[in-house]
Simulated scan of single mutants.
Amino acid sequence: MSLPAELMPAVLDALPDPLFILSESGRYLAVYGGNDTDHYHDGRALVGRRVDEVMPPEKAAQVLEQIRRSLRENRLIKVEYPLAAHEVKGLESADGPGEPLWFEGHIQPLAKQVDGEWAVVWIARNITPRKELEERLRLTSVLDPLTGLFNRRKLLEVLIERFAALRRYGEPCAVLMIDVDHFKQVNDRYGHSVGDEVLLAVADIGRRILRQNDLLARFGGEEFVLVLPQTDLEHARQVAERFRRTLIDGLSTDFPDIPPVTVSQGVAVMRADDVSHEDSLRRADQALYEAKRQGRNRVI
C-alpha cells in the first residue's frame, strides 16, 4: 500500500524533527516537521532565504560545505553541531528554548533538481540530552568527587601539555606541591567529616585566588598540585606564599574551634633539559618534603 501523493506534505509536517530542503546555494526551499516543541523553533520563516543571510559567516560556511559535500559525494552525510535561536535571524523571538541545542544533521541528496538547483534533505535531530550526558560523564572522569577540583588524571594530562609547550615554544611553567599539615590529626581528633570540610575549604580558597589559566588539582588524600603556566620560579614562590597566607586566614576563620590548619609547599619549574613532566613534579615533591622537614607551614 502506498500513500496518495497529496498526503505526503501532511506526513512530513507530522515529523517530530525539523526537515529542511536546502539548495546547493544554501537557500531554504521548504521546511517541514519540527513538532517536538520542547526542543525546536519554527523555522518556516526561513523559507526563501539563504543561510549566509540568516547565520553568522562561520556557521553559514559550515552548512554550505556539508550541503556541497553531500551533493559532491552523492551520499548521506551525518554531522553534529550546536545552534542557538539567536544565531539565526528570524528565530530570535520564536517559541522554543533560548539556550544552544546540539543537533545531529542527516543530509541526503535529492535525485532531482528543485527550482533549477540541486538540493538536499537536511533532518536536524536534537541530541542535546545525549551531549549533556556525555559532558557529565567526561567531567566525572576528570573531577575529584569531594572537592570538585580536577583529579590526578586531568592533572597529568595538563602537565604533559605544558611540558610539550615548554619544549616547543619555550613557555615556562611552575609546579607547586601542597600538603595540608598534620591532616591525620584533624581526622583522628575531629572526625573525617571535619577533615573533608577542611579539604573543601582549601579547594574553595584556591579557586578564589588563582588566575584563569592556572590549574589546581587534588593529587590524593590531603595533597594538592597547582600548575602555573607562564610563570617562573620567583613568581611561583610569590603565588605559593600568597596561597599559604590566604589559607591560614581563611581556614582560621572557617574552623575557629580547631588548632590553626596550615600547608607546606614545594615549588619547582619545568626545565628544557627535563626528560618529561615527571621531573618537575618530582622536584616539587622533594621541595615539599624539605618544607615539612624544616617544620612545615612554609614554602621551599
Rank of each mutant, 00 (worst) to 15 (best):
T147Y: 13
E157Q: 15
D181E: 08
V186A: 09
A217L: 04
V225S: 04
L137N: 05
A124F: 02
V114P: 09
T231E: 08
M177Y: 04
R237A: 10
A119R: 09
G191M: 12
S141E: 08
E157D: 15
D188H: 13
V175R: 05
D196H: 12
F150R: 14
D179P: 04
L199T: 10
A165W: 08
I209N: 01
R242P: 02
A164T: 13
R152W: 10
H182E: 11
I160Q: 14
R208Y: 03
L159W: 03
G195Q: 07
E132Q: 15
I205V: 13
T140C: 02
K112L: 13
V120I: 15
S141H: 04
P172Y: 00
I209G: 07
L143G: 01
I123T: 15
I178P: 00
D144V: 01
L226W: 12
L199Y: 10
R153T: 06
L149G: 08
L137T: 04
H182F: 15
Q212L: 01
R125K: 14
I205P: 02
V175G: 06
G221Y: 11
A124V: 02
V175Y: 08
G148N: 13
G148Y: 11
R218P: 10
E234A: 14
R242G: 13
D214V: 00
V227N: 03
V225R: 02
I205A: 10
L155D: 07
A164C: 04
V225E: 01
G206Q: 05
V175C: 08
R168K: 14
L133N: 08
L143V: 02
S193F: 02
P172W: 01
D181G: 11
P145F: 09
I160R: 14
L156E: 14
R211N: 01
L155T: 03
Q238A: 08
R242F: 05
T147K: 06
L200F: 02
V239C: 12
V239F: 06
L226V: 09
K112P: 01
A165Y: 09
A217C: 14
R207H: 06
W118P: 00
E171S: 05
L146C: 05
D204N: 11
Q212P: 00
K184P: 10
L215M: 10
G148F: 11
G191A: 12
E241C: 11
A201Y: 04
V180E: 07
S141W: 05
D204C: 00
G220C: 07
A217S: 15
Q212D: 03
V180I: 15
A217M: 06
N151H: 11
Q212N: 05
L139A: 05
Q113P: 14
H182P: 06
D232M: 05
M177R: 12
A174R: 03
L210T: 06
E135G: 05
V142C: 03
L176E: 03
T231P: 08
L159F: 01
D115Y: 09
K154A: 07
N213E: 10
W122D: 07
V239K: 01
L228T: 03
F219V: 00
V194D: 06
F219P: 00
D196K: 11
E117Y: 12
R208K: 14
E157N: 12
H235F: 04
V175L: 10
I123Y: 02
E197R: 15
